[in-house]
Design a protein around this nucleic acid. Structure first.
Lengths: 155, 155
DNA sequence: CCGATATTGTTATGATCATAACGATATCGA
DNA sequence: TCGATATCGTTATGATCATAACAATATCGG
């Protein structure tokens, strides 16, 4: 008997023959996010903004000045990551930073006039982009998706 | 009239006063994926595997040897990205590569015996992890979420 | 046959992402 | 008051991610 198969490999006995990657929510969520992010970049990419950068600007627009740390939590970014994003936005003069006078640990971030104007220009585009992403869903399904995703995100 | 406000800032007139970041699917999807990914790393992180790395191994387990490019498409990764993942897995001897004899452009990737054994060890853990991620949802809501996410991902 | 076209893998660049370790500052409780 | 504890921002490391440009190989049409 030859040590290596000649014509056909011996059939491999698999312990999990019916496992499917598609059954894992994480994989589906990753693909869906890729699609949403891609849709956004297609439309606002010409402004040289990424999805996380837009989220950061939008959050500042909603809430006004925030400490860097709180801002990070409100856009779901770790301290190390929000720092880099803020640095890039600051370099482009879309946000400005100042020290909190009462708590010397904090750095307060706020939109500049240019940043505010840009957000107001982008909001309708982003809303349109969300509609594009949701296009495969019927109206009643969209609200349901929000409900389900919100609960998943909270945990 | 002073050029700078003294006591209170003049109320800023916002063009989109009721805009909410939470209404954008992309943002919700990103947060939900963060949660799912975090759940996975909590459980398989001790194996020094990330979610994309696990997905790559799992896909190879499902389909057998694949070209690097096709493998990338099947796990939703760009050619440049799947390359790096394969390199890391190869360095750990979880996958092996060989050239396709008929098409000299292709690199065929396959699980090693160690890689196969690892996947079979991880599959039940991953399945359990998916259950954890889906815990906030009732049974009938889970199937619905899959349906909606699949349609979103396809576009 | 053979040149235009397409596909595969690589390289480079820049932007997330998560984690751990660290100094500086605040806060809380004994 | 003062020391333990917590929070904030920084630094470093390593792993995704997307995009563009490129060489090598296949494929297709005339």
């Amino acid at each position: 008997m030859p040590r290596t198969s000649t014509k056909a490999e011996a059939p491999v006995r698999r312990l999990a023959p019916d496992y499917r990657l598609e059954d894992q929510v994480g994989f589906l969520l990753r693909k869906a996010y890729q699609r949403a992010s891609s849709n956004l970049v297609e439309r606002i990419g010409s402004y040289d903004l990424t999805a996380p950068q837009y989220a950061t600007l939008a959050r500042l627009y909603e809430r006004g000045a925030l400490s860097q740390n709180l801002l990070g939590r409100l856009v779901a970014m770790e301290p190390a990551n929000i720092r880099d994003v803020v640095l890039r936005l600051k370099k482009r003069r879309l946000v400005a930073t100042r020290r909190d006078p009462t708590d010397k640990r904090l750095i307060l971030i706020d939109l500049t006039a240019a940043g505010t104007a840009l957000v107001e220009q982008l909001i309708p585009i982003e809303t349109e982009c969300t509609a594009t992403t949701l296009a495969p869903l019927k109206a009643d399904e969209r609200g349901l998706l929000y409900e389900l995703l919100s609960r998943l995100a909270e945990g």
